[in-house]
Design a protein around this nucleic acid. Structure first.
Lengths: 214, 214
DNA sequence: ACTTAATTCGAACGAACGTTCGAATGATTT
DNA sequence: AAATCATTCGAACGTTCGTTCGAATTAAGT
């Protein structure tokens, strides 16, 4: 007899446009709670018993929805990253100016980051916690996201005839944005839009001013 | 009878200018190896048995040098942060130009970061792994470091009559610099000096150009 | 050489870990 | 109502965790 989770997962993989089944809704709920716990205690620091407590489900019951703690982290990371990439692509469709496209990238990133701070902290923090198989799949999505940003910056470079290291600029930008999970306090700091504007100012002035080849 | 580590540590707290005793040297060696292990497996993920293996000392023997795993992390964090602050202060003494002082700050940070990548990863990554007592002491040093950077930026602001949010600028700069532990590859990327120059360019142009009040 | 103190270790402790299994529920279909 | 499937759980598995203790070993002081 196959394990319950194997059967269950397969039975849900038929249509993807179908209204979320009971199984899917419960899984999503577990992922939400798990994200919370991973954020607060870290992946290694959080125990399955912590997750059991947070979800209100028994320890054994959790294993009906995923076959290991590692796969749970994988599901969280994959879902979070896929969502942010999908949203970005959708938003970029309606903007053509190179500078504005970068501002869209920054705003999209920060908005999602601040709205899902727990998830993003888990994503940033548990970067290399996944073993070969799962790690590779997440790395692929991450690389796509990175490549999009490189493309946006190269467009700007070409458009304004600028000279700077794209790699260093992109990674600096990611650093500025991702570090936010260590300091942002909703009661003190501005909202995503304001921060995106200010960071966009610093970054865009930084890479555009004073280094033209023309 | 008091625990060995209590006795031993007290007996070493007499003079601080004395040539490092056997105890101090062994402890420093353990800290080095432990830093390595924490970097590779994370604080929670690394076991005392891992540390025992890495140092070549027995599991029980380690407890002669520190009373808990948490205190070990504390010792690493405190030592690392104290060193970086001390070096910064020394370097700043000979530079007076506001922009150059910020460049010194960036270079000092990145040089130490890249030369002690493991230690800094532990420092960034295990930010809030320490409980109340230990956490507070590390936070104090960290805050001092942060305040120095705020001071440098405020000087620049006043000197050039600029307008921007110091807090956001400082935190953006820290993000740019600290994120480096996720991507720097010594075989591909430039050395600290080059990266410091490029990041300094981006950041300083970003905060100085186009926002004068004069 | 003898005594004392500093350092190291093997063996074990109880607690917590991730995971499994078979039985017990709850829901759906016949 | 019976039968089938989906979901949940209590109880336990073997492992590994951080830490302790008393004895053994090594170095230092006299």
């Amino acid at each position: 007899m196959a394990s319950p989770s194997t059967i269950a997962r397969r039975s849900r993989h038929r249509a993807s446009a179908v209204p979320a089944s009971r199984y899917d809704k419960r899984l999503a709920e577990i992922l939400r709670h798990a994200t919370d716990v991973f954020c607060k205690k870290g992946y290694e620091g959080a125990s399955m018993r912590d997750l059991s407590r947070a979800t209100g489900m028994s320890l054994a019951g959790l294993y009906y929805y995923f076959e290991s703690k590692e796969r749970l982290l994988f599901l969280i990371q994959k879902h979070t990253f896929s969502t942010i990439v999908a949203r970005l692509k959708s938003r970029l469709e309606s903007v053509s100016d190179p500078e504005q496209r970068i501002r869209v990238f920054i705003l999209n990133h920060l908005e999602y980051f601040l709205a899902n701070q727990e998830a993003m902290k888990v994503l940033s923090h548990e970067d290399d916690a996944l073993k070969n198989g799962y790690g590779a799949e997440v790395a692929t999505i991450k690389r796509e996201y990175y490549r999009i940003c490189v493309g946006l910056l190269d467009d700007l470079k070409q458009n304004r005839k600028l000279e700077f290291s794209t790699r260093l600029a992109v990674l600096s930008l990611f650093g500025m944005m991702n570090w936010i999970y260590t300091w942002h306090n909703p009661r003190v700091d501005a909202d995503a839009e304001s921060i995106a504007r200010e960071m966009g100012d610093i970054f865009l002035r930084g890479v555009t001013s004073g280094s033209n080849t023309a």
